[in-house]
Design a protein around this nucleic acid. Structure first.
Length: 442
RNA sequence: GGCGCAUUCGUCUAGUGGUUAGGACACAGCCCUCUCAAGGCUGGUGCACGGGUUCGAUCCCCGUAUGCGCUGCCA
């Protein structure tokens, strides 16, 4: 009975899911799965937030996106509800009464404070080790308020009461709570409860080493969703911040993380969030996407970039997207990489224009354009042989034709395979774009 | 200020009382190549500093510095 693992993620509904909170939730979830325990979601909305339901939705959506499900909590039910602190008033009152009856409280200007026993409290933390906190000095450790004069509750109290009531066995939370823990332990004892095991995990910092605040661009999980990151990549990256399998592997399936995860192996050092590395990892997962999923997510990404693919034949869109798969690390790059398939008004890269749209290339490109015009079958194989034959006739290297052509047709010098892209675009568009570019030469 | 936690390449990390301190991202160069990407190869940068303990410390102890957290009738 004492072996039942129950952990919780207890965010307050601020309207978005902090990336650090997401990792805390993830570690709790992985730990629960590792030990066959229960992961509880509890919404700490004591601060009379107005739009709790909407603000909490950001939390549900973020967790769901990451593939984190909860065995108990809002929308899941459970035997220890409500899972909203705003609906647990009677429970808190009951515990407060007990505390008062035992003489642990006193009133202060209408508020209720908890009278500290003033002892040494040793926090035996799974991650941080054994730490001795001296709470004997009233100057440095004043009695904490647990209920405001207006009747609303203070975090420390309700957090502890809920963890007792919900039979939480392990509290896995950010290291910013480490200094709060001795106070919480005082409360557990005063309430006659055995404190749970604690594990304080390091914080996630910005790339410059500063604290990631709500204002920082990457602080919200939502920004990664919007930019087209894959949930499995973000989840994998988050696992690697403060934890590792110790064998140099980095790309790990979540099942593997669950199999290997140990709180004891969590680092104690705060970690900086490295967007570059996340992007790299995302690219690794992008390459493994099934064609169908890549197409589906690609369509969404293009739509988000204002590109309407609906007016193109299904087969055309499919072929176009397929040439982009494996080439981009992030879906937000898709419009820049393959947007030329769907719009004629794309920008021409100025540096490339200066380099390739030069006078000596004009007759070459015109020769190629005329050769293309005579092609009956506008397929990749034919296009390649015609281009190479033309290059040979002109006495230039293949690249001398490839680069200006690509630029003329796509506006860029980076993109999908040229011959395939020409085939998909089709003769009419290709010739039109070549003609347009020929008129724009320096 | 007080209390607490931390400190291995720029970043994420592996690691040990004796290692050429390993991997990854990023970066540079080369190869491959229709570009980009991927892949292959090569390269540079690291144990914060000062004292101890020890035959020997990146690793153990103490101090300093720096960073972060807490120090609320925020959570």
């Amino acid at each position: 009975m004492n072996s039942e693992i129950r952990v919780r993620f207890a965010p307050s509904p601020t309207g978005f899911l902090h990336i650090g909170g997401a990792r805390t939730a993830l570690f709790n979830w992985v730990f629960a799965r590792r030990h066959g325990g229960t992961f509880v979601l509890r919404i700490e909305d004591t601060d009379q937030s107005r739009n709790t339901a909407e603000a909490a939705a950001a939390i549900y959506d973020g967790l769901r996106w990451l593939g984190i499900d909860w065995g108990e909590g809002p929308r899941a039910g459970g035997n220890f509800g409500s899972y909203f602190q705003s609906e647990r008033n009677e429970i808190y009152q009951r515990h407060l009464d007990r505390l008062a009856a035992a003489g642990h409280t006193f009133e202060d200007n209408g508020a209720i404070r908890f009278r500290s026993p003033r002892e040494h409290v040793v926090v035996d933390d799974i991650v941080c080790g054994s730490i001795d906190f001296d709470l004997t000095n009233p100057e440095t450790h004043p009695d904490m308020t647990i209920r405001r004069a207006d009747g609303s509750w203070i975090f420390h109290f309700v957090n502890v009461v809920d963890d007792i009531e919900m039979k939480i066995s392990h509290v896995i939370r950010g290291e910013d709570h480490l200094s709060n823990t001795p106070k919480h332990i005082e409360l557990y004892r005063a309430l006659g409860a055995t404190p749970p095991r604690f594990a304080h995990i390091p914080l996630i910092l910005n790339q410059n080493g500063s604290k990631m605040s709500k204002r920082d661009a990457g602080a919200s999980l939502g920004t990664y969703i919007e930019q087209g990151f894959l949930p499995e990549a973000v989840r994998n990256y988050l696992c690697l911040l403060g934890w590792s399998p110790k064998d140099d592997r980095e790309k790990l399936a979540i099942e593997e993380v669950v199999r290997l995860f140990e709180l004891e192996k969590i680092n104690r050092k705060n970690a900086s969030f490295d967007l570059e590395k996340l992007t790299w990892l995302n690219g690794e997962y992008m390459r493994e996407l099934t064609d169908d999923r890549f197409r589906a997510l690609g369509l969404i990404a293009l739509a988000n970039s204002g590109i309407d693919t609906a007016k193109f034949p299904e087969e055309y869109v499919r072929a176009a997207l397929d040439t982009c798969k494996g080439k981009i690390r992030l879906f937000s790059e898709l419009a820049a990489y393959g947007g030329f398939y769907f719009r004629d008004d794309f920008e021409y890269n100025p540096e490339s224009v200066a380099k390739y749209f030069v006078s000596e290339n004009k007759p070459r490109l015109r020769a190629l354009r005329d050769a293309f015009a005579e092609l009956e079958s506008f397929d990749a194989t034919s296009l390649e042989s015609v281009l190479k034959a033309t290059a040979a006739e002109l006495g230039v290297k293949t690249g001398a034709l490839v680069h200006p052509t690509r630029l003329a047709v796509t506006g860029s010098n980076a993109g999908p395979s040229l011959y395939h892209l020409l085939e998909i675009l089709g003769k009419t568009k290709v010739l039109a774009r070549l003609d347009r570019s020929l008129g724009n030469f320096a």
